[in-house]
Design a protein around this nucleic acid. Structure first.
Length: 274
DNA sequence: AACGCAAGCAACCGCCCGGCG
DNA sequence: CCGCCGGGCGGTTGCTTGCGT
């Protein structure tokens, strides 16, 4: 719509990158660092779109990339983060060192979706598959957590915890809070080296009457616990409870701010959930 | 051995957003 | 305040590979 193309397409290569192109890109970035992607291809002697160079570097050539198969711990972490953030692949990738948003997105679409479906969980809503429709009708106790990650780079995230009587799935992902009156909790500034630890807890309803039980009450320890609304049918709930604890609290990594459920174990830097 | 199908993944496309003049 | 530009992101495409028949 009148928008100028990001590069002169007529003279740019497309498709798979050759080893020579990779090497040129690596050499250039080693020498000059990541800079203006638009001008980089020309300066590096590449007939590629700047965006293409950026993507190639970020997703494939970066030296700190882990590559290789995802571990079970990474799987569960991705699932948890996705249940909170939706398709915010870059934010999720930020919590998985050595992994890229593209890689996680692909992995989600090819592996985890299927894994969740086999567990009887809707990959989009993270709720039991055949209870999805019932869920939309039962919204009275839903707490809608909107996380504003726009300031993550500045280490100054704003966590918006909104209580709303009409929980809309689509708004959860977008982070839009226009129609809710959010209870805003602003996390104070933290040192730039401190990573934000997005630990949170999601309790899965095992009984239809759990709402009134003390265990099901959201525990607010600096942040909240998300308790999905009760559902009439909870197939595979037992399976899920065994697989994922989802006891997850927000704090600062290394700062002692976050706490895992006592049953969760930390193994090699990854948490194994109870 | 050849073919067809499905899965996996790299790369592209187009939109959005923030910074800057 | 407004428009432009560049970077970043999510969604999608299409090529490659692996597997079954």
């Amino acid at each position: 719509m009148g928008r100028s193309p990001c590069c002169e397409k007529a003279h740019t290569n497309k498709g798979a990158w050759t080893k020579e192109e990779d090497q040129r890109l690596i050499n250039y970035i080693r020498a000059h660092g990541e800079g203006c992607w638009r001008s980089l291809p020309k300066a590096a002697g590449l007939s590629r779109c700047g965006k293409s160079c950026r993507l190639r570097w970020i997703n494939y050539l970066r030296p700190d990339l882990k590559r290789g198969n995802f571990t079970e711990e990474e799987d569960e972490l991705i699932i948890k983060l996705h249940s909170l953030l939706g398709n915010k692949w870059s934010v999720i990738a930020g919590r998985l060192p050595g992994r890229t948003d593209n890689e996680i997105k692909n992995y989600w679409n090819t592996h985890i979706k299927r894994k969740l479906i086999s567990r009887g969980i809707d990959p989009q809503t993270h709720r039991p598959l055949n209870a999805t429709t019932a869920v939309t009708a039962t919204t009275t106790t839903t707490k809608n957590i909107n996380m504003d990650f726009t300031n993550v780079d500045q280490k100054q995230p704003n966590i918006m915890i909104a209580t709303s009587s009409s929980y809309d799935e689509t708004k959860c992902n977008s982070g839009t809070t226009e129609e809710t009156k959010p209870l805003e909790i602003v996390i104070p500034k933290v040192p730039s080296q401190v990573m934000i630890n997005l630990e949170l807890s999601i309790g899965l309803p095992l009984h239809s009457d759990h709402v009134s039980s003390p265990e099901s009450t959201a525990s607010y320890n600096f942040l909240t616990t998300v308790v999905p609304p009760p559902t009439a049918v909870v197939p595979a709930a037992e399976t899920m409870a065994k697989t994922v604890c989802l006891c997850w609290q927000i704090g600062y990594q290394g700062g002692g701010g976050g706490n895992w459920c006592g049953k969760c174990k930390n193994t090699n830097g990854f948490y194994r959930y109870c």
